[in-house]
Design a protein around this nucleic acid. Structure first.
Lengths: 324, 324
DNA sequence: GCTGGATACGTCCATATCGTTCAATGGTAG
DNA sequence: CTACCATTGAACGATATGGACGTATCCAGC
């Protein structure tokens, strides 16, 4: 094992172009990564390194590189706390992962599986801060993870508790997220719920959160809402968009007709109905021109953008002259 | 008494590492920020920290950094008032009461009725920071307000949407609260859910939050959990306390027997079962010496304190391995 | 191999915080 | 009223922090 010293220039050793030193299985971190991970500025990190508090190696070009063990030693001995553990790859939910690299969806699954509330929050928040759209995180990470956890259900009785706990954690993180989103509601009102008889609360919460991120003033009415109550509310607030999530379906034929009518009612007051959820296909409403279908949250968000765009142009012509 | 505020999504500028404009991970506050926020000099803050009244972490260079939860705990327990809420990521908030004097329960009712999410959050947090115990806020303000809103249900169809919306807001505020509580789990593990067949999610969330504030590592398994799944989980984590909320009751006789057995099973592994909720009296379990009944959250919290006290004395004779 | 955007380099500076001392304030007991 | 004690906020020089600057390096994508 090669000795590592700070400050003085190390012998030329090309480590810059790879993040891994394959010969030693060492992982290097840049000052930015480590700085973000422990929540200090790069300036401070540089100063500490130059003072010898943190041992760094240097690339040929003079850039600092920090080995994982040294980063950990420094964190432990200096007493600084880790703000974003996942930046260091430290979220080891070692259930059946043998040191392999996990993508964000896998990490989320393991964190949910382990009931690690803080971990889940951190993972989702970081993804969002790194610029990933919420609908993408939801569609590609959160929902698959929950589906996967739902499958445990069949294997073992403990799968039920894991699923319930994961559900609770998701709802908490969603609430946290919804609250932290900038409250700029430029696109009008959106309102939604789960279909009557459907008591799944997560899908509709996901939609509400994603739509808030899109700039809608999204009001979530939660699971299992009678359609006439929803209609009554729509008469009052005139939403641009109404979503209904359908993850559990009892009386398909009744709901189908109700949704048809509801969509037309909304149309009359310049609103649109978007339905989604795992059971939506059973309703066979894909031919109906007034009922929009979002197969996932991304689609729903796309539809919402279309609606707003259309509304803009529609209002512009309406200002001048309204023609049939 | 002029501290009325809610939490703002726009955080204090320049705290710690933040380089994104709307920092979602507001981790640390500097003495200046906190001092300005509560209107005291940095000198006093330093002295309090040195005397151990306020827990601070230190940067490598020795500067004090305060985490938000600790700041809120200190504000709450020391009774200082917040002068500039926005510095802590809270925003000035005053509900429009048209001059009339309303108590906090009434204000909460109106805010919930109006769907004013920010208002509800502000009111609850305000009460909490003024030193009122969470269980008291829940028992005397939140639950009565929700009950009152539930009554609207009968008058008018719009009562249904109001109730759903209020429920969603409550769940959000609870999540927010749970997140802001200091995470010191000194009293052991607590675990709970709503009874099988009971799909009300709020009571069990209230309990989880109150128990966290009490120092339990409370895990909420949400509504409608089969008892055998709960039992399976209890075998694994050996909770000190298990709560079951019963707001809706179908097969009373079956559940009664199950709960009896469950309570005895828990007893055998040093745990206690506490049940509560509006339908609890129908179970007629008040004679059973092993099934504890908490008529409200305050009672449940009291019971939990008793349990811990008893456990302490019990362990003193046992002298098992001590923790660091 | 070349190239462009992202990132880090070294350096400088404004501001914040450090530990400490000291004067002002306010309550209390004699 | 005075003497005493506790608390507070302001001041001090020294140090720490984070951001800004122009230049240099890194590395992924072609």
């Amino acid at each position: 094992m090669r000795t590592k010293f700070a400050i003085s220039q190390l012998p030329a050793r090309q480590i810059g172009n790879v993040q891994y030193d394959h010969s030693m299985e060492n992982k290097y971190y840049t000052p930015k990564t480590l700085g973000d991970a422990i929540g200090v500025s790069q300036s401070s990190l540089k100063r500490w390194a130059d003072r010898g508090l943190l041992n760094v190696e240097r690339t040929v070009g003079g850039h600092r590189r920090i080995v994982l063990e040294e980063a950990l030693r420094f964190i432990r001995e200096s007493g600084v706390s880790i703000v974003k553990p996942d930046l260091l790859g430290l979220e080891d939910y070692d259930i059946d992962t043998e040191g392999q690299d996990l993508d964000s969806a896998d990490k989320l699954y393991y964190a949910l599986h382990a009931g690690d509330e803080t971990g889940v929050r951190g993972l989702v928040l970081n993804q969002y801060l790194e610029g990933r759209p919420l609908h993408e995180i939801f569609d590609q990470d959160l929902q698959p993870a929950m589906t996967r956890i739902g499958l445990l259900w069949h294997d073992d009785i403990s799968g039920i508790t894991i699923e319930h706990r994961a559900h609770d954690i998701c709802m908490q993180v969603l609430a946290d997220l919804r609250f932290r989103l900038p409250k700029v509601f430029t696109k009008g009102m959106a309102i939604g719920c789960s279909a009557p008889g459907d008591s799944y609360s997560m899908p509709t919460a996901l939609v509400a959160t994603a739509l808030r991120a899109e700039g809608f003033e999204a009001v979530n009415l939660g699971p299992n809402l009678p359609l006439d109550a929803l209609m009554d509310e729509c008469k009052k607030v005139k939403p641009v968009l109404v979503w209904i999530s359908i993850s559990h379906l009892k009386k398909a034929h009744i709901l189908r007709n109700d949704l048809r009518d509801f969509a037309r009612f909304l149309r009359d007051q310049q609103g649109a109905l978007v339905i989604g959820g795992s059971q939506v296909s059973r309703l066979r409403l894909d031919k109906d021109p007034f009922v929009l279908i979002g197969k996932n949250i991304h689609e729903l968000v796309s539809i919402s953008r279309g609606l707003v765009a259309e509304r803009m142009t529609g209002e512009k012509t309406q200002e001048t002259k309204s023609e049939e």
